[in-house]
């Protein structure tokens, strides 16, 4: 094994190189198909599998971005890490900043939401109508990414993905008499983050 060049001997990729969206979409499609075949028709299991893959991506992305962009520093405060997710992580993975970062209205102030109106991974995925509200492949993957980043940064949280039809885009268009053709409606993906209690306690200490 002495001949193998170690990862530490080559410079960190700059993150500027790109592949075509087709290549990525087909790869993701294979991932979804494989996960579906392995999950015995259970949507929960399918989503868990996609989340697991996303989790690993998130874990590694935190490391890469901290080394490359943040001068080897990591966020320690809640708003810092959320902003980092919303901006840096989203931009380097999905090519754009997420569309919204909001705070949920709860008593404990522990819920936050990151939303994307056009998640690039979902662009070529059409979900059967009867499952439209229950499965969101790209969303599950993104939720995994978010949980991976948060976990690796020391912010354990419960992360779930939710899909909502984007207002103003028709879900189905009528083409010709009696023929309803489903036009893939744009879906807004919302990643709901519920931070662990320990994170809030630490935050309170840091703020004091």
């Amino acid at each position: 094994m002495a001949t193998t060049q170690g990862r530490w001997d080559v410079p960190l990729p700059t993150g500027k190189s790109e592949v075509s969206l087709s290549a990525m979409s087909f790869l993701f499609s294979e991932l979804v198909q494989y996960s579906q075949a392995r999950s015995a028709r259970s949507i929960v299991e399918l989503e868990r599998r996609l989340e697991d893959v996303g989790y690993e991506v998130g874990e590694r992305m935190l490391e890469v971005l901290c080394l490359r962009e943040k001068g080897r520093r990591r966020e320690t405060r809640i708003l810092g890490i959320l902003g980092f997710l919303h901006t840096s992580v989203w931009k380097s993975l999905f090519g754009k900043v997420a569309d919204a970062l909001e705070k949920g209205v709860t008593e404990e102030d522990d819920e936050y939401m990151i939303s994307d109106n056009d998640l690039v991974l979902n662009r070529f995925i059409s979900v059967p109508k009867e499952m439209e509200n229950s499965v969101n492949c790209g969303g599950s993957f993104a939720a995994g990414v978010v949980r991976g980043v948060l976990d690796a940064a020391g912010f354990p949280a419960r992360v779930t993905a939710h899909a909502m039809p984007l207002p103003g885009t028709p879900a189905a268009a009528t083409v010709g008499p009696g023929n309803t053709v489903s036009v893939p409606s744009r879906v807004r993906t919302t990643i709901l983050i519920k931070l662990d209690r320990s994170v809030l306690q630490r935050e309170a200490r840091l703020a004091a």
């Binding site: 990729p13 790109e18 075509s20 969206l21 990525m24 991506v57 380097s92 999905f94």
Partner: peptide
């Protein structure tokens, strides 16, 4: 072609 980040891939 539309591109995505190589790191995601």
């Amino acid at each position: 072609q539309e591109k995505v980040s190589n790191e995601l891939f």
